[in-house]
Amino acid sequence: MEWIPIVFATFKVLVLGAGMFFAIKWHYDQGQKEREMDKRAVLRAGGKVAAVFVLSLLGLGLVTFAVARMLGLDLSIP
């Protein structure tokens, strides 16, 4: 059995695990520091993120549709 995949998979799990731990810890510490954050500001920021996500999803769908049409794929609904 090859040892390289075992070493790389173990390294990947350790690095991703450490990264997740420190990301969660940093976000928790930021939440404790900024308890007084305005709810309207949070909702406004969340709305902006959701709008950007929907617009990017729509753009990706349109680009995918255009490329599929350009390649001559059948896009009719049965």
Score class of each variant (00 low, 15 high):
14 L>Q: 06
28 Y>C: 11
11 F>C: 10
17 G>E: 06
33 K>Q: 14
21 F>H: 03
14 L>K: 08
62 L>Y: 15
9 A>R: 10
17 G>R: 04
50 A>G: 07
68 A>M: 07
61 G>A: 10
12 K>M: 09
69 R>P: 00
11 F>G: 05
23 A>E: 06
51 A>Y: 01
71 L>V: 03
46 G>Q: 12
7 V>W: 00
71 L>R: 02
31 G>S: 02
13 V>H: 08
57 L>R: 12
13 V>C: 03
61 G>P: 00
43 L>S: 10
31 G>D: 00
40 R>V: 10
40 R>L: 15
77 I>Y: 10
78 P>T: 08
40 R>N: 12
12 K>L: 11
20 M>G: 00
59 G>V: 13
19 G>K: 08
25 K>N: 10
58 L>W: 11
7 V>C: 01
68 A>H: 03
11 F>D: 04
58 L>Q: 07
13 V>N: 05
6 I>K: 12
50 A>V: 14
70 M>V: 08
36 E>W: 02
71 L>A: 04
56 S>R: 07
77 I>F: 11
3 W>P: 00
44 R>V: 13
65 F>I: 04
52 V>I: 15
27 H>Q: 09
2 E>F: 13
52 V>L: 10
32 Q>W: 06
62 L>F: 15
25 K>T: 09
14 L>Y: 05
63 V>L: 11
11 F>K: 06
6 I>W: 13
44 R>F: 09
41 A>S: 12
32 Q>Y: 07
26 W>H: 11
16 L>F: 05
23 A>H: 04
17 G>P: 02
31 G>M: 01
37 M>F: 11
67 V>D: 01
69 R>I: 00
59 G>Y: 12
29 D>T: 13
53 F>R: 11
4 I>C: 00
33 K>P: 01
45 A>D: 06
22 F>Q: 04
8 F>I: 15
3 W>G: 04
22 F>A: 11
65 F>G: 02
78 P>R: 11
16 L>A: 13
66 A>Y: 07
55 L>T: 11
48 K>T: 13
7 V>L: 03
30 Q>Y: 14
37 M>V: 15
37 M>I: 15
49 V>S: 09
46 G>P: 00
54 V>L: 14
17 G>T: 07
47 G>S: 08
49 V>Y: 10
67 V>R: 01
21 F>S: 00
20 M>S: 05
31 G>E: 00
13 V>I: 14
26 W>A: 15
65 F>D: 05
76 S>H: 03
22 F>L: 14
30 Q>M: 13
3 W>F: 08
49 V>I: 13
24 I>C: 05
75 L>Q: 08
62 L>T: 12
24 I>S: 09
16 L>V: 12
24 I>H: 05
32 Q>N: 12
45 A>I: 03
8 F>G: 03
22 F>E: 04
56 S>A: 14
4 I>M: 04
6 I>H: 08
1 M>Y: 03
35 R>K: 11
26 W>P: 02
72 G>Q: 09
27 H>E: 09
2 E>Y: 10
15 V>E: 03
38 D>M: 03
14 L>G: 04
28 Y>T: 15
48 K>S: 09
25 K>C: 07
14 L>T: 07
